[in-house]
Structure formats: structure tokens, C-alpha cells
């Protein structure tokens, strides 16, 4: 029964259904991993933290309240993992992205029409990686995971107004960064 909602699966898991947990992990491991790669710039670290995020989910499962906010809750766990790792690494600026990431398939091939190819995609990835951590988190959750402003606010423990500002500043910074890089090129 893979059509069970996330809330239902969490309730079933807390009630002793281990298969419900398996469905949750298999449903969410790829989005969580992609989010962590974009936050950290390292697929290896992202894989470790993806695992850790689900371990945290298991430990906190009893405290989860099924109110239809599972995605925000899970991304909050993963975001906390990413933030503590970034704090540990003290990475505040540029994060190099590896070939594994570069070779992954594009999400929307039609959107490549305006690009000059891999070089431009690399520029975009690097510009995202250079954003301040909270701007990057808000932007990644919006652009790649399609969360609403309210869901991003729930995930990041902030207000919708703050999310608006983070996204606006993040997008402005990206545009300036890319314009500067193109001028250099």
C-alpha cells in the first residue's frame, strides 16, 4: 500500500508497522539526498547525512504530530543536519561540486534551451553554493522541492515575510553573481 499518506505511514510506523517506515524512507530518500547535496556540495557527505536524517526521524517518530506537515518536518531534520555539518566545516563561501553531481541527468531538459551547456550550469551551481546558508536553504526548498512560502517558513522555523526576503535576496545575489561571471568570461 504505497498510496498511504506520509501522516498515515508515520502513525502506522509508531504503531509497530516497520514496512511503513520502509515506504517513507524509499519515498523521501532521493529528495532529502538532493537537498543535502545542494546544501553541502558533497554527494558523499550528503549520503551520510541522508542516513542520519532518517535515523533522527526514527528517534523522533513518537513526537511527530500528523498535521499534514510531514515534508516540512523531514526537511527541517535534514536542514538541521546540513547546518550543523556546515558549522563544523566552517564553510561560508564557495563549495566545489563534484563530477558525480555534474553527470546526473537534468531535471527539465527543455529548460536548457537558453543555456550554453555544462559551463553555464556549473556557473549556476557554483553561484547557488556561494549564497549565504539561509538564502541557499530557502532557494533550494523553493526552486527544487517546490515548497510553498509557508512550508519553507515551517521548515526553517521562521515567518513567511522572512522567507520572502530570503528568496528575494538570494535571487538578486544569484543574478549579480552570474552577471559578474559572464562579464569575466
Amino acid at each position: 500500500m504505497t498510496d498511504r499518506t506520509d501522516d498515515r505511514l508515520m502513525t502506522d510506523y509508531v504503531g509497530g508497522d516497520e514496512n511503513a517506515l520502509r515506504i517513507i524512507v524509499e519515498r523521501w530518500e532521493r529528495p532529502v539526498f538532493a537537498f543535502l547535496v545542494r546544501m553541502l556540495g558533497s554527494p558523499e557527505e550528503a549520503e551520510d547525512l541522508c542516513q542520519d536524517s532518517f535515523m533522527k526521524l526514527i528517534k523522533a517518530a513518537d513526537r511527530y504530530r500528523p498535521e499534514g506537515k510531514f515534508q516540512s518536518w523531514l526537511f527541517r531534520i535534514a536542514g538541521n543536519q546540513a547546518r550543523s555539518r556546515l558549522r563544523r566545516r566552517k564553510i561560508l563561501r564557495w563549495l566545489p561540486l563534484t563530477d558525480d553531481y555534474d553527470n546526473a541527468p537534468a531535471r527539465d531538459p527543455d529548460a536548457l534551451t537558453d543555456l550554453t551547456g555544462k559551463e553555464e550550469r556549473d556557473l549556476v551551481q557554483e553561484a547557488v553554493a556561494r549564497l549565504p546558508e539561509r538564502q541557499r536553504q530557502a532557494l533550494v526548498l523553493k526552486q527544487y522541492h517546490d515548497l510553498s512560502y509557508q512550508e519553507i517558513a515551517d521548515t526553517m522555523g521562521t515567518t513567511v515575510a522572512s522567507v520572502q526576503m530570503l528568496l528575494h535576496r538570494g535571487m538578486s545575489a544569484l543574478r549579480k553573481d552570474l552577471a559578474a561571471r559572464r562579464d569575466e568570461g
Binding site: F33, V37, D100, A104, P105, A106, A111, L112, R121, V124
Partner: peptide, 22 residues
């Protein structure tokens, strides 16, 4: 800008993490 971001490749998880978190 949104189109450029959408064109960025999605990182692929190399293997499931289920066997390590069950």
C-alpha cells in the same frame, strides 16, 4: 533565473539508505 536553476541536474542517490537506517 528560475529556468536556469531548473536546468541544473538533480543529484542522484547512488544506493538506498534503507538497509542502514532500518
Amino acid at each position: 533565473m528560475t529556468g536556469l536553476l531548473a536546468a541544473s541536474p538533480t543529484p542522484e542517490l547512488p544506493r538506498t539508505v534503507w538497509h542502514r537506517v532500518r
